[in-house]
Design a protein around this nucleic acid. Structure first.
Lengths: 217, 217, 217, 217
DNA sequence: AATGAATGAGGGTTCATTCAT
DNA sequence: AATGAATGAACCCTCATTCAT
């Protein structure tokens, strides 16, 4: 949790700080993100960071929460309310997620980094943990849909949930490959890649269709 | 590329070195893997590393190639020869890959780390690069199958290849979640998790079935 | 000297401040006692400390004086009036000192710390200074006793005064060793060790007897 | 334990390092002694210290042992062989200890600092620990003397041992007071105070006589 | 081919003190 | 009288790399 000092900061200072810090953690994983780097960029004293946060880890978790909340605000409504058409919901979910990441590449890249933290003993294996939670979530939704008669075939919940999670996690990579940009680069320059919502929709649609349809036999 | 010095090394020294280095890079990502750690563990002179390799990066790439080759040797025959049944092939491919990773957790963990290197300017985005190559590969195989009449529905090659790649990449996580072990921990202790080949086969089968079947509508 | 600001403070604020500061300097020597710690504990502004005192040193000396005075108040009457029996007086003096320290471990520990400050250029060698004064004091008392005929053997004033001082200084250590407690720990938890006045009396008696008797030849 | 690196150092470098480090820890207690200060003085790279020692604590304990051994070498024979006359032995013991400290004020001051470490959680309470050990040692010697008939009065072993320990610990202070010098200052300038062995002998003799004789009644 | 001491920049963190409000 | 953000130097420690031997 940030210290009161941080919360008392005038809006501009605070957002300046947050932006720079977000960027640092978007471009580097936890260990390699550097407090020194942040203060150098901001031109503030190193001590200030520790007036704002307990330590690097505290700052990190704050940024995760912040970025997470921002994204949730932009895309969260959907998440909570899967409509009757499961795949439509899943598609919209990921389109809006990708659109967000494209629009806010810094937050996007940061959250993507978080979902890859695996080797850090201080932080723990967030990657696996998140995946497990996501699988549980999809299982829950799928069961509800099946019980409500919205899905007619009873799927192997676990396996299929895995597919849904794993597929979702890679969509941004797919986007980067197809449209030949680097989200990281965008986060660095604080620009958005030239990818339209239509591009995203179309890509996701194809992927979900592949997932949905009995595509091959 | 390793220097000649390294290649001239007596077998035992070389393999000692390699094993320890592999382990270091299996437990840590590139930036956090430490040359110091390696020589400390080995009890050799620090300078030796730089007699063998240009620098840390050179060593890293050598290890990647080595681990890749080792795995290829164990699982490569399959890869080269997709039989008539695409999904059977895909299944066997990943079963053998997982079995290998379970048996050789160090090499497995190292290669998994590589597939996550995204943020290092010195290294480049290996994750994306690998994915792109894998997608191209699957597209190629799928096209061949279709052209040979082994597949009757023409899939969206790109989208479906993406699914295949992405699904494959996450299987080890799925295994860890289902059987509650940590590959990293295994690499650390140089032990294998208590997961049988049957366990793996069964898990992969379910996932591939989900991918293959028109599971939901 | 505290600034007027401090003296104007309402009683409760002032005593709150003093208590916390005493504790900090009881648990740490001068250099390692931290103003930051004090204000953190108190939940007051850092600047306040510097409204009250010139600087850390000023605060330190104020606390020393305060703790000294408190102890003097509790044990001082004795000090001023050595009766006819020198050793009885000496014994009572130290029993009451130890009892005080046991009862007020914070003040006790602080004063003990002071008597060890030796290496700080900013502070000077308080330990030596105090010892010197104490020796002078005992010399004075001894001379008076001798001149009044209360002591029949003329001692080597200086040497014997040294013994008295030095013996006195270590009694709390002896107590801690014999009753296996840590005054510092008590100061930390603001508790008193489970040592009775009888325990103290008995210990001091033995030591003083050893000092007094021609114990060995 | 120092690392091999340190032991391999050419004599001059090593002794340079040791001298500077000893001095730093002679002038400051553990917490306030500064690695930075040492390297600054020596004009070497900070990293070097950590090629030589695991960390500051490692260095500290090495220096303690070194200084302890040096002193033991100079004064140790006595310690091991209390002759028939207990007080003569005790006197000689402390005379030789003081002579050593006067001659080698750096080692002397360092060891004195060690015997005062009390408030450091990382180091533990060395002061109390040492005292306890010393008391045990004297008790042992006294018992032997009594059993051998060399002492005719049975002392209160514990109390008297305490007196012996405590008296010994303060002798250097007494010396400083009487001859008006500062051991610390001497350690700083690497000079010896102008105190002769005779001065020391005479001072100790008086103190021990006070301790021994039935000085007052 | 091997050594391993030296480097020096960088890491995160703590601190007493100042000063504008 | 109180605030508390800002400072910047200092702390211990780690690192990849060099280079003389």
């Amino acid at each position: 949790m940030p210290k009161q000092t941080f919360l008392n900061l005038p809006e501009e200072k605070r957002s300046n700080f947050v932006n720079t810090a977000l960027r640092e953690f978007a471009l580097n994983d936890y260990q390699n993100a550097s407090v020194t780097s942040i203060v150098r960029e901001l031109g503030i004293a190193k001590g200030s960071v520790y007036q704002y946060f307990e330590n690097k880890k505290d700052l990190y978790f704050y940024l995760i929460e912040l970025a997470g909340n921002r994204k949730l605000e932009a895309t969260g409504e959907l998440l909570a309310s899967p409509g009757d058409d499961f795949f439509k919901w899943y598609r919209k979910l990921h389109v809006s997620s990708l659109v967000y990441d494209i629009q806010y590449p810094v937050e996007g890249a940061l959250l993507r980094n978080v979902s890859k933290e695996e080797n850090n003993e201080e932080i723990g294996n967030m990657s696996l943990h998140n995946k497990q939670e996501a699988i549980t979530f999809y299982k829950h939704v799928l069961k509800q849909h099946y019980n409500s008669g919205l899905i007619h075939t009873k799927p192997s919940y676990t396996a299929f949930s895995y597919l849904l999670v794993q597929t979702g996690l890679g969509l941004m990579d797919m986007l980067q490959i197809q449209f030949n940009f680097s989200l990281r680069e965008c986060a660095k320059n604080n620009t958005s890649p030239e990818v339209s919502e239509e591009d995203i929709k179309s890509m996701v649609k194809k992927v979900v269709k592949s997932l949905q349809q009995n595509s091959i036999h």
